[in-house]
């Protein structure tokens, strides 16, 4: 039962407030998942620590080489951001797909990641962007690579009763780079993805240089389609190579069947075409400049 709801003014204060509650306090960053989980008894807390009063947390910041998204930045802010539309169009598309407008106005991108759901839209889109998370706790500040944020299926490495992810950062788009996000869904709003794919490519002379290809839900957090990534490295951009990447991703994918979100067979069946579409969209973004 929540007894207290606090708005610290600095990150240090927030960390101290969590520490003094010795595990009985929790960060709330939006709360569109947390409140439901608390009502269902899955999570309990005596105190909720809301980060919105901390200066800077609610901003998308452009640095020389990177962009950072503060802990209180909502999905709606991302959707409206022209900066991100240019540097991370897949992330914008992913955020537009979350919940409904009311939910997007409240739900935060960092919360979407820390919740730990492997197929969370924003998380899958960020996973291909070489993103890092800035984590603060009593021990200090650390930067953790995105793929180290997951401890298991729907389990985050972040302990929200003592740690705060203050921002997620990723490099700005460089010449020849492009990214994308694709999801399969049962309806256009208020639906979790049946599966999703994100991709980032660097294209030089019509060849794939760096390729990031991620898919979910196939494990703890978004998973790299490693064999497909390796296969594409240095290959020409051809229909055949793109198709082959889809086939390789399928061989690696280990979907499970869900009575609500689709069968394993269907997810495996449409994964190749989702991979193809993600790659084509990322290539188009790269060629657009």
């Amino acid at each position: 039962m929540v007894q207290d709801y606090v708005f610290p003014g600095t990150v240090e204060q927030a960390v101290a407030m969590l520490a003094e509650s010795k595990g009985r306090a929790r960060v709330i960053a939006g709360g569109t998942d947390l409140v439901l989980d608390m009502r269902d008894g899955k999570i309990t807390a005596d105190k909720l620590v809301d980060l919105r009063a901390i200066d800077g947390m609610q901003r998308i910041v452009e640095h020389d080489d990177s962009i950072s998204i503060g802990a209180s930045v909502t999905h709606s802010q991302i959707v409206r951001s022209t900066l991100l539309r240019h540097h991370a169009p897949g992330l914008v598309d992913a955020c537009r797909k979350v919940g409904s407008l009311q939910i997007r106005n409240v739900a935060t991108v960092v919360g979407n990641v820390v919740n730990g759901n492997p197929a969370a839209d924003a998380a899958v889109a960020l996973a291909c962007l070489d993103a890092t998370a800035t984590v603060v706790d009593e021990q200090g500040t650390r930067t953790i690579p995105f793929n180290e944020l997951y401890a298991g299926i729907c389990i985050s490495c972040i302990n929200s009763s003592c740690q705060i992810v203050t921002q997620i950062s990723f490099p700005k788009k460089k010449a020849g780079e492009g990214s994308s996000y694709i999801r399969m869904e049962q309806r256009k709003a208020l639906s979790l993805p049946m599966l999703n794919v994100s991709s980032k490519v660097r294209v030089i002379n019509s060849q794939f240089q760096d390729v990031q290809l991620l898919m979910a839900p196939v494990g703890a957090g978004p998973q790299h389609a490693v064999t497909a990534e390796d296969f594409l490295m240095g290959k020409d951009i051809t229909d055949e190579n793109i198709r082959q990447a889809g086939v390789l991703a399928r061989e690696q994918a280990t979907f499970r069947s869900s009575a609500v979100r689709g069968s394993k067979e269907y997810r495996i069946g449409v994964l190749p075409v989702c991979v193809e579409r993600a790659l084509r969209a990322a290539i188009a973004d790269a060629q657009e400049g």
């Binding site: 309806r187 256009k188 639906s191």
Partner: peptide, 10 residues
Amino acid sequence: HSYMLPTAED
């Protein structure tokens, strides 16, 4: 959440 009524967007 699981019962797929069409939404306004659909």
